[in-house]
């Protein structure tokens, strides 16, 4: 187990290095001048700015410098917010994105398991049809539409109630978290519902369930211990990547609900060619994703006794 963990971590480090290298060179290959602005500046200022960000050196040398700084966990100073360190930007805004992401995943996971199991139990009957219809809707309607509609609905609900049931946008209290996290988790929940449904159906028809029933186990026990526990495995598998995907992909929800997450920096940095922020956020998100995949693989061994980690 320990050796396996170690091996996976080494692989992870190599993956992150690869992500960093690919992003670094892709970024420098993107046309455009990160220091260009509407107002022209003098040659002297230009030189000073280039020196400040190390742009006066050849790209390979910049790359070596970047790797060295990255090892020390330092991503430098932002190009657009000139007195802020990229590390500070990540440290301040990632917890917000993570909070939103964790809640969205919790919402998606529980919802997915419950709805999925329900549809499997009521297979081809009315509840199944209704839920399946909603699931298809949830998968096919893009996030920004759901976010906008959710917000609009909230405005009307608040107006109808005559007081603010839940805030329309912003961040800070529990009440701010509920709607955005549900909106963000909706697509994943729909996906997990489908996954759970098919996996439940497969297991319900398997031999060991029949055996369990034949030997007279109480239905509750069969359902919880044998059906649910086995059916949930595929859900766990996709959970890790979806935590990362949801946490890193909340940009639209963050925009619509004016949430101060990292998604904004991530997207804006690319549009503004903010080299240091691009590298910082990409490497950070990459490492996060890789880490989540490893965690899920390790969890697998705990949940499914058939899986041996070696």
């Amino acid at each position: 187990m320990l050796a396996y963990t170690f091996k996976r971590l080494i692989q992870g480090v190599i993956t992150v290095w690869f992500i960093a290298t690919a992003t670094f060179f892709a970024m420098h290959a993107v046309p455009g001048d990160p220091l260009a602005n509407e107002r022209a500046t003098t040659e002297a200022i230009r030189k000073n700015l280039e020196a400040r960000y190390g742009l006066d050196r050849p790209v390979t040398e910049q790359y070596v410098l970047f790797l060295g700084n990255m090892m020390r966990g330092d991503f430098g100073i932002s190009f657009t917010q000139e007195n802020r360190r990229v590390n500070d930007i990540i440290r301040e805004s990632f917890p917000v994105s993570a909070t939103l992401g964790i809640l969205a995943v919790a919402f998606a996971a529980f919802g997915g398991v419950v709805w999925g199991a329900l549809t499997a139990i009521y297979r081809n009957r009315l509840p199944d049809l209704v839920i399946t219809f909603l699931v298809i809707l949830g998968i096919s309607v893009p996030g920004f539409v759901v976010a906008a509609l959710g917000q609009l609905a909230l405005v009307d609900i608040n107006a109808w109630l005559g007081f603010s049931l839940l805030p329309i946008a912003g961040w800070g209290s529990i009440r701010h978290m509920i709607v955005p996290s549900m909106v963000l988790g909706l697509g994943t929940m729909a996906y997990l519902t489908r996954l759970m449904r098919s996996s439940m159906l497969e297991i319900t028809n398997s031999d060991f369930i029949r055996t369990a029933r034949a030997k007279g186990l109480p239905p509750t026990r069969i359902f919880l211990k044998h059906q649910l526990r086995n059916a949930i495995l595929p859900v766990i598998t996709v959970l890790g990547p979806s935590i990362a995907a949801i946490t890193t992909g909340g940009f639209v929800v963050e925009l619509v609900f004016a949430i101060p997450g990292l998604g904004r920096s991530f997207v804006q940095s690319v549009q503004q060619l903010d080299y240091t922020v691009i590298m910082g956020t990409t490497v950070f998100y990459g490492a996060f994703l890789v880490f989540m995949v490893i965690v899920v693989d390790l969890l697998y061994g705990l949940i499914d006794p058939r899986v041996r980690l070696e």
Binding site: P167, G170, G172
Partner: peptide, 14 residues
């Protein structure tokens, strides 16, 4: 999480 947010000082109620 909101408790954790208040100790790290993330956002505020509007």
């Amino acid at each position: 999480l909101s408790w954790a947010a208040t100790i790290t000082g993330g956002g505020t109620t509007a």
